[in-house]
Amino acid sequence: MTPLVDTHQHLVYREVAGYGWTAGIPALADKEFPLEKYRELAGEPSVAATIFMETGVDDEDYQAEARFVAGLAGQPSSRMVGLIASCRPETDEGYEAWLDECADLNVVGYRRILHVMPDDLSQSETFRRNIREIGRRDLVFDMCFLSSQLPIAVELAKAADNTRLVLNHCGVPDIAGGGLDPWRAQMAELAALPNVNCKLSGLLAYCVPGEASLEAIRPYVDHVLETFGADRIVWGSDWPVVDMANGLPDWLTVTGAILDGLSEDEAARIARDNAVRIYKVDP
């Protein structure tokens, strides 16, 4: 398998930030997920490089998280080639100052988690203008919507057509509930927009508990491959959230099986080349 660039590596350092969203999730609650543990599970040669993804820390801690992880990324052994930092596009207060600071933190993109927020948060002109500012700076915005919110994702993508967008977790389909439709049509609508890319990540965690497998996610993977094509898909581990399924080693095995079904060139694009191009990193 082509060595992967992981575009969705979370880390959990509870002395640095609060992670209130993990409460009540046995696989995650009250646990540490440091860089050393990730490297032990991922290892070489499976994962050649990583891009840290903000971990949905408590609101007051999102800037502290990025500053701390930037320090980790500065260590040559980290294999981190960039950060996706949290931001608050819904307000102008401090927004551009944060983007300015992030230029010194090796930030290659931003995310505002939207699947736990009111639907209208991303529909304001302030939010959309501030996403366009990310594009003006030639950086990426990762979109995190539930499948029920994909029409809103389409609206945002059209309103910020100057910005490279990456849809997290294949649009969070309801795999446990067999929710192929209307997800399929909505994903095709997003794929028709040239500024939207798709992240192959998270799917196993959406399966029926105890039934996460390649067979369970295959219809969703195949549809993403068909609609976005090998040129607009990147890979992510979603570690440690992947522990809600069968863990990172299993997801690496499943990923290998998916990529083995493609041509060598297609597999290399999804595993590595698209991430390098879209996030403009050098692994």
Rank of each mutant, 00 (worst) to 15 (best):
V5W: 00
I217L: 14
C144V: 15
M187S: 05
M1Y: 03
G178N: 05
I113Y: 07
L190R: 02
A216L: 06
L150K: 00
E266T: 02
L105C: 09
E266K: 03
E40N: 05
V47L: 01
K158V: 08
L165S: 04
V221I: 14
F68H: 15
R88H: 10
D142T: 03
L146I: 06
V281P: 00
N168Y: 03
R79G: 02
E266I: 03
D231C: 03
D222V: 04
V140P: 04
A191N: 03
F141S: 15
L262Y: 02
L165V: 03
A64K: 07
V140W: 05
D92Q: 10
M244H: 00
L259M: 00
D231E: 14
D282V: 01
S237K: 06
A23C: 11
G43V: 05
L105S: 06
A275V: 07
R164V: 10
H115R: 14
S213I: 05
A212H: 08
A85T: 05
E96F: 02
H115Q: 15
K199H: 07
D138F: 10
G82T: 09
W21R: 04
E101I: 14
K31W: 04
L204R: 01
S122V: 10
A48D: 09
D265C: 03
A27N: 09
A176V: 08
Q63L: 08
A191T: 07
Q63G: 01
D265W: 06
L28C: 09
V154T: 13
V57A: 13
Q75V: 10
G135L: 09
P173R: 08
P89K: 11
